[in-house]
Write a protein that binds this DNA or RNA. Structure first.
Lengths: 349, 349
DNA sequence: GTGAAAGCGCTAACAG
DNA sequence: CTGTTAGCGCTTTCAC
């Protein structure tokens, strides 16, 4: 492979428009101190030559790389991809993140990093050193991983923590997990349910706790007891199966169950079938996430829709605005989720 | 934001190990002409300092960027993301492409480009100029878009054309569309079907034609007529609906239909329901792609599984091997697809 | 307002 | 086998 050089460089533009490199640079970066007439002449040269600055060169000279790194958990992401169950977290992140990046002349680059490994730090630092991104987006469970957050805090690089509420480092953005859990619970209470079970997610996701909090709060507000109605899974179908089984085997069987993700909700549906419980007549179900599969369940599941695309978009905007030196919002940014009503909730006579 | 400099550079490593920059560079790039002892000393310094080369600097100096660009159709990709029907083409590409890139120290960066726009060329050239990737992966319908292929051929940059069979430029890789269509058709013939309808994809995807060819060949080999059994859609659900309707309204109604993608197959299922035809008893259906939704259809659909992850992985390997100067395979690379049997095909007495 | 010079981190080309 | 020199394309810093 021959030594690959840029086809059109800033030098060509400078020559074509009869100005110095510096002036072209000023036009590219939309800086002040360029006469309008000069600017338009340079711009014309840029357009006619089809010049696009090399981000490698821009980075080298100490400016931006126009790259934003979005980091997801390797193990879970690959497992989801292999399972082919339609989990579309990555797609929705790309939808919101890539398009918003593109609007601002940035590019999103997607990386997978192990949370549990003892070399998280090395992996992350290697990605940063190699790519030199302008900002980083952390998703759960990374966004609450103290090792990662501490490391990031030392980097002098803006980073957003999706699914975190902690203001200790980075910019937290949440999807209103507590409020969503309250909404789901209230929806069931309004339908006449009294014993509403809840299958929580794993503890290394802080949002797992917030969802439990929302459910507890709604139950308490309605004067309902939660004893024996809480169980825990790890977001896997198998764990949801076990949790649903325990909940439905209990002496005071719930008439409704809220599961903290779709896979566990689907497992609950399976268990109901095995126990001969009709959904929604004998058991109502609400799930979290609203990935594609729940539309195709029998019956289609009522679900809390996680606004992943909107959140990723927001995350990108916050990083870029931080880069521009604009002040970071003082209050926690919350992207609202919504309840999608389908056929898995029955009104209880 | 302060001028961001690399934390650890090649200079630090050189100083720490008492050699020149060039020697460190040789070690990094695993070049010859370094004494084993020197090499291990340098490597030790690299490890202890946690040094990772900056890809921007590597690119600037005329070497690799270690970036491979995967290009998909903007309109269709975004439509799929928004529809949230579980189409996992992108996920499977990332699964195969990203992981294989990572194995070789490369990174895959994902770009969306409009096929139909009149500024495809500008978009593509801008991406190349900005990122300076080492290779490009084109997917359908880009891989057969003459404008794009011609442009790429002028770039002196290796590119793989997924879903193309043309050896005129770039490296073609196919997923055996013709063979798969034959397999699906033979499967139905073996089950006793004689009138097997086929819903083709749009003409701007060359693979649409190959699938029709495979169906035709299998029908001919079995001595079956295809008159009145072919219709066309554009991969959308609506077009599949219309095509299925025409096929099933015809005087000699088919007993089985093969649809060129999942959405059109799902539409066929809908039409069957509307016409009061039981699937599979009155109408058998086979779809192409095997995206997650077909598992959840009622009944679950027998489908040709498109090996997207394996193909993307292969594409990356071919680019990297080309970069290493290894010879490009003389014969067309074909990644085999497989038939996944589910409940939508009935044996015909 | 505009330009000239220096340097970012790395590798190609050439010396030895 | 190892080192030196020059330069990639761009922006920073400083001059004018």
């Amino acid at each position: 492979m021959a030594r690959r050089k840029q086809a059109v460089t800033i030098r060509h533009v400078a020559a074509a428009s009869g100005v110095s490199l510096q002036t072209v640079s000023r036009v590219i970066n939309n800086e002040a101190n360029v006469r309008a007439e000069t600017k338009s002449r340079v711009q014309a040269a840029i357009d006619s030559l089809g010049y696009v600055p090399s981000i490698a060169a821009q980075r080298m000279s100490g400016s931006r790389s126009y790259l934003i790194l979005a980091i997801n958990d390797r193990e879970r992401t690959i497992a989801d991809w292999r399972a082919r169950q339609g989990t579309d977290w990555v797609d929705q992140m790309l939808l919101g993140g890539m398009l918003t990046c593109a609007e601002h002349g940035y590019r999103m680059i997607f990386e997978l990093i192990d949370t549990h490994s003892d070399h998280v730090e090395r992996e992350l630092l290697a990605a940063i050193a190699a790519l030199q991104p302008d900002g980083i987006i952390l998703t759960p469970p990374h966004s609450d991983n103290p090792q990662i957050v501490t490391l990031m805090a030392e980097q002098d690089m803006p980073f957003v923590r999706i699914g975190s509420q902690r203001a200790d480092a980075g910019i937290p953005v949440t999807m209103d997990d507590e409020g969503s859990a309250r909404t789901a619970t209230d929806h069931l209470i309004a339908a006449g349910h009294r014993r509403i079970g809840f299958i929580a997610g794993p503890a290394d996701y802080e949002l797992s706790g917030w969802r439990v909090d929302g459910w507890r709060a709604a139950m308490a507000a309605a004067g309902l007891d939660t004893a024996g109605l809480l169980d825990v899974g790890d977001f896997s179908r198998a764990s949801g199966h076990a949790a649903a089984q325990r909940l439905l085997d209990a002496p005071s069987r719930p008439t409704a169950i809220i599961a903290s993700n779709d896979q566990m909700a689907m497992a609950t549906l399976d268990v109901a079938g095995q126990l001969g419980l009709a959904v929604p007549d004998d058991l109502s179900i609400i799930s979290f996430d609203n990935t594609p599969i729940v539309q195709f369940a029998q019956p289609p599941l009522t679900a809390i829709d996680q606004p992943i695309a909107a959140t990723a978009s927001k995350a990108v905007e916050m990083i870029i605005s931080h880069l521009k030196g604009e002040p970071t919002p003082a209050v926690l940014t919350t992207v609202p989720a919504s309840l999608i009503r389908r056929a898995s909730v029955a009104v209880r006579g």
